[in-house]
Amino acid sequence: MAHWLMKSEPNKFSWDQLVARGAAGEEWDGVRNYLARNNMRAMALGDPVFFYHSNIGLEVVGIAEVCALSHPDSTTDDPRWDCVDIRALRPLPRPVSLKEIKATPELAQMSLVTSMRLSVQPVTDAEWQLVCRMGGL
């Protein structure tokens, strides 16, 4: 099982909006970066995902899971672009800020630190466990 981080601007689509979608989840559409697309193509059903509020908040706020495998993005007719669906599992008891992550030496190589602009990123097992602990899980 792989772990991931997906970024969303909370003023466009927030954690609360994902929670409101319930078990059906939401299509993670609009990604127009080849590496991010390839990361979604590599996802498996049930893979856990950190939900990260970008631009506003700059923090990991919850845990979601992949609930539909890579499929054509419904927001474009261009066959190059795929997406997955995710659904909310649980909020972090305490959001983990980018500032905290950057201040943690064990997370210095985390994609969130090294590839800040990438919207869909892999997370190592060790990074996953540490961020979960930082968030109160």
Score class of each variant (00 low, 15 high):
Gln17Glu: 10
Gln17Cys: 03
Leu18His: 08
Val19Phe: 00
Ala20Asn: 09
Ala20Gly: 06
Arg21Pro: 00
Arg21Val: 02
Arg21His: 03
Gly22Ile: 00
Gly22Pro: 00
Ala24Leu: 14
Ala24Met: 09
Glu26Ile: 07
Glu27Gln: 06
Glu27Cys: 10
Glu27Val: 15
Asp29Arg: 09
Asp29Asn: 07
Val31Leu: 09
Arg32His: 11
Asn33Gln: 03
Tyr34Phe: 15
Tyr34Leu: 10
Tyr34Asn: 02
Arg37His: 08
Arg37Pro: 08
Asn38Phe: 15
Asn38Val: 15
Met40Asp: 05
Arg41Asp: 10
Arg41Val: 08
Ala42Phe: 06
Ala42Ser: 15
Met43Asn: 10
Met43Thr: 13
Ala44Met: 07
Leu45Cys: 12
Leu45Gln: 14
Leu45Ile: 13
Gly46Trp: 15
Asp47Phe: 13
Asp47Arg: 07
Val49Phe: 02
Val49Lys: 04
Phe50Pro: 06
Phe50Ala: 01
Phe50Met: 10
Phe51Thr: 13
Tyr52Glu: 12
Tyr52Trp: 08
Ser54Ala: 06
Asn55Ser: 11
Ile56Pro: 13
Gly57Thr: 05
Val60Met: 08
Val60Cys: 04
Val61Ile: 05
Val61Met: 04
Val61Pro: 13
Ile63Cys: 00
Ile63Phe: 02
Ala64Arg: 03
Glu65Thr: 09
Glu65Ala: 11
Val66Ala: 01
Val66Tyr: 00
Cys67Arg: 07
Cys67Gly: 02
Ala68Thr: 08
Leu69Met: 15
His71Leu: 01
Pro72Val: 10
Pro72Met: 01
Asp73Gln: 06
Asp73Val: 09
Ser74Asn: 07
Thr75Trp: 00
Thr75Ser: 01
Thr76Pro: 08
Asp77Pro: 15
Asp78Gly: 00
Pro79Ser: 06
Arg80Phe: 14
Arg80Lys: 15
Arg80Leu: 15
Arg80Ala: 08
Trp81Gln: 04
Asp82Met: 11
Asp82Phe: 14
Asp82Val: 13
Cys83Glu: 14
Ile86Arg: 09
Arg87Trp: 07
Leu89Trp: 05
Arg90Asn: 11
Arg90His: 11
Arg90Trp: 02
Arg90Ile: 14
Pro91Ala: 05
Pro91Cys: 03
Pro91Ile: 06
Pro91Phe: 01
Leu92His: 13
Pro93Tyr: 01
Pro93Lys: 06
Arg94Ser: 15
Pro95Lys: 09
Val96Ile: 11
Ser97Gln: 09
Ser97Pro: 13
Leu98Ala: 15
Lys99Arg: 14
Glu100Asn: 03
Glu100Asp: 06
Glu100Trp: 12
Ile101Asp: 13
Ile101Gln: 06
Ile101Tyr: 07
Thr104Val: 13
Thr104Pro: 12
Thr104Ile: 14
Glu106Leu: 11
Ala108Arg: 01
Gln109Gly: 05
Gln109Pro: 14
Met110Cys: 10
Ser111Pro: 05
Ser111His: 06
Ser111Leu: 14
Ser111Met: 09
Leu112Asn: 02
Leu112Cys: 08
Leu112Asp: 13
Thr114Tyr: 04
Ser115Tyr: 02
Ser115Ile: 03
Ser115Glu: 07
Ser115Asn: 06
Leu118Lys: 12
Leu118Asp: 05
Leu118Arg: 14
Ser119Val: 12
Gln121Ala: 07
Gln121His: 05
Val123Ser: 03
Thr124Ala: 11
Thr124Ser: 09
Asp125Glu: 08
Asp125Asn: 04
Asp125Thr: 09
Ala126His: 02
Ala126Phe: 01
Ala126Cys: 00
Trp128Val: 11
Leu130Asn: 02
Val131Gly: 02
